[in-house]
Amino acid sequence: MPRRPAVAALGGGHGLFASLQALQLVTDKITAIVTVADDGGSSGRLREEFDILPPGDLRMALAALCDNSEWGLQWADALQHRFAGEGPLGGHSLGNLIIASLWDLLGEPIAGLDLVGRLLGARGRVLPMAAEPLRIEASVLGADPEQPDEVTEIRGQVEVASTPGRVLGVRLNPDPPLACQEAVEAVYDADWVILGPGSWFTSVMPHLLVPDLREALVHTTAKRMLTLNMVMDTGETTGFSASDHLEVLAAHAPELHLDVVLADPTVVLDGETNCVPLPNH
């Protein structure tokens, strides 16, 4: 049998979840590298109360990599279960609470994630992109509909993801953020690195704003693939075409070389395939 490739998949939320499920059809050597800037919902409440990494996107990645057995699938469902009601548990997912509990017990985020992965029989490993919780900040044109020509500074993942304006650029706080060294090593050790799909400014671009991780993406010997979303012009990328997404990436990491851009033909406009000068490509 040919050797299965080692893959490092970068992203967050539902986009990374879908990517990880698809990658399991190709290889079992998967490392998910997950954004840690979420500040909404259960994750936001837990990070504020306990000063921890937001566990939600990490939980989703673990669930995506669960073993395809009755045991694994049942535990994946349990991990994703969300409590109803308006009480203290309302809105929390069981997986977030389990992860937060293990971090408290073990005192080390990666050990806790590895333990949950063992419980699920995960076909791969899940790592945070940074060793500390981050805040996303963005410059947005027309965030106030009554002042469409004004640039506003917006803070927080939820605010950036839901802004009605056009996002011009994003940054992270603290700056520079401290990378997760295991994630950096996974990028260097990979045969393929896959960036995206997902919310462009809040799940995909943040990986390029962690200096050590960006350096690894630039200098790794792995092939680099960017996966575009199935649907353009939504949410934080309202008004964006496929080529606009690539221009944003080039602006945030001009030295990054891409080997493959994967896109559904329906989202690529006539003439776009040759109109974006990708750096070093």
Rank of each mutant, 00 (worst) to 15 (best):
V151G: 10
V151I: 15
V151E: 14
E153M: 09
E153I: 09
E153S: 13
R155F: 14
G156F: 04
G156K: 13
Q157F: 02
Q157S: 05
V158W: 10
V158C: 00
E159Y: 11
V160I: 12
S162Q: 15
S162F: 02
T163V: 05
P164E: 11
P164M: 10
L168K: 03
L168F: 03
L168D: 03
G169P: 07
G169W: 01
G169K: 04
G169T: 08
V170K: 09
V170W: 09
R171Y: 10
L172K: 01
N173W: 11
P174E: 11
D175Q: 09
Q181D: 06
E182H: 05
E182Y: 04
E182L: 10
A183G: 13
A183Y: 01
E185C: 05
E185L: 13
A186H: 01
V187I: 15
V187M: 05
Y188N: 08
D189H: 12
D189Y: 00
D189F: 00
A190E: 00
D191P: 12
D191C: 09
W192Q: 05
I194T: 11
L195Y: 03
P197G: 03
G198L: 05
W200R: 02
F201A: 10
F201M: 02
T202Y: 06
T202I: 07
T202L: 10
T202S: 13
S203Q: 11
S203T: 13
S203V: 12
M205Q: 07
M205Y: 03
P206V: 01
P206E: 11
H207V: 05
L208R: 03
L209C: 08
V210M: 07
V210H: 01
P211Q: 06
P211Y: 09
P211V: 03
R214V: 00
A216N: 12
L217A: 11
L217K: 10
V218S: 06
V218P: 07
T220D: 00
T221F: 10
A222D: 12
A222C: 11
K223F: 08
R224S: 12
M225D: 00
M225C: 15
T227E: 01
T227A: 14
M230V: 13
V231R: 13
D233W: 03
D233L: 05
T234C: 02
G235L: 13
E236W: 08
E236P: 04
T237Y: 01
T237W: 08
T238S: 15
G239T: 04
F240P: 00
S241Y: 06
S241Q: 08
A242Y: 04
D244E: 12
E247M: 08
E247A: 05
V248S: 12
L249H: 05
A250W: 12
A250L: 06
A250R: 15
A250Q: 15
A251R: 13
A251P: 06
A251C: 03
H252A: 13
A253H: 02
P254R: 06
P254W: 09
P254T: 05
E255F: 02
E255S: 15
L256Y: 14
L256D: 14
L258M: 06
V260Y: 09
V261F: 01
A263P: 06
A263N: 08
P265M: 07
V267C: 07
V267E: 10
L269P: 00
D270P: 07
D270L: 02
G271Y: 04
G271H: 07
E272F: 04
C275V: 11
